[in-house]
């Protein structure tokens, strides 16, 4: 089978998330592992890697796409019924088997909520197999919150404990802070660790922009959380998705890895030992 030929897939539903992000429900089930990504094609424009934001336990694949480049801009012009090309799923995904039986702390910043949502859905659907679930989500303001309905509903539910931080206060954020003063605060996502009791037996999943990752990493390590139980995702411009084109290579010296094949999920130890990470800013 030729891995580089995309399959045409119908877009079933498009839902606005933020002014720059949309959620696409695709007419395909891929049996993906949370944390994996697909290559999405718009013929004539190109191909872009997009992380899957839905759990395989929920059926059709969903992707939450920010409008940043040529392909994603073109994708944002498409509505339900249009077709796109899909290849994948690719990448390793989160080691959910390893986390079985333990508490899971999910930390998301900005668009990092997309892969985290896939993990969250999976954990909620297999609640019996896992311990307590905590979600720490950092947003700029309410308008930039992804999956608004779902998050608001979860804040009110016992299935998982949601902690929320926001940088700019608006009406909704203010109301939420008043309603849940012990779980909502103004500031960056690391501020939430003042409200959360970290269990060193837990596993952690961290997704967000590189800067955010390093701050969270430092914060959690300082609070005595074992970094080998922490998992993060890296994003690069994976062109092939199968470890050939080498656009996604990370690390320097003797520690080089492909984000598409060895990742996109890396453990805290891997992240630390990839010395080339010093170039990530």
């Amino acid at each position: 089978m030729n891995e580089l030929i995309p399959k045409p897939v119908k877009i079933l539903k498009v839902k606005d998330q933020t002014p720059i992000e949309k959620l696409f429900t695709l007419g395909v089930k891929l049996g993906q592992k949370p944390g994996q990504f697909i290559e999405m094609s718009i013929a004539g424009v190109g191909e872009a890697p997009v992380s899957i934001c839905s759990s395989p336990t929920r059926g059709n694949v969903e992707v939450c796409v920010r409008r940043v480049g040529r392909v994603t801009n073109a994708l944002h012009r498409l509505g339900a019924g249009a077709r796109v090309g899909v290849r994948g799923p690719y990448g390793n995904g989160f080691p959910l088997e390893k986390m079985r039986g333990s508490e899971v702390v999910l930390v998301a910043g900005g668009i990092g909520m997309a892969p985290v949502r896939a993990v969250l859905q999976y954990l909620l659907d297999k609640k019996k197999e896992y311990g307590e679930i905590k979600l720490l989500y950092g947003i700029r303001d309410y308008s930039m919150m992804l999956f608004k309905d779902e998050i608001l509903k979860l804040m009110n539910s016992k299935a998982c404990t949601v902690y929320l931080s926001y940088e700019k206060e608006d009406e909704v954020c203010k109301r939420l802070r008043k309603e849940y003063p012990e779980r909502v605060c103004q500031g960056v996502v690391t501020k939430l660790f003042e409200m959360v009791k970290l269990n060193p037996e837990a596993h952690a999943v961290v997704c967000g922009p590189p800067v955010m990752f390093w701050f969270v990493f430092k914060e959690m390590r300082n609070r005595g959380f074992p970094i080998e139980r922490l998992y993060m995702t890296l994003e690069r411009r994976m062109k092939c998705g199968i470890g050939k084109c080498k656009h996604c290579v990370v690390g320097v010296g003797s520690m080089m890895k492909y984000v598409c094949k060895d990742g996109p999920v890396f453990s805290g130890v891997e992240a630390l030992t990839m010395r080339g990470m010093k170039y990530v800013r």
């Binding site: 004539g44 424009v45 190109g46 191909e47 062109k239 092939c240 050939k244 084109c245 080498k246 656009h247």
Partner: peptide, 10 residues
Amino acid sequence: CQCYDVLDVL
């Protein structure tokens, strides 16, 4: 060298 770039021609 293994790297390749990809582009669509419309």
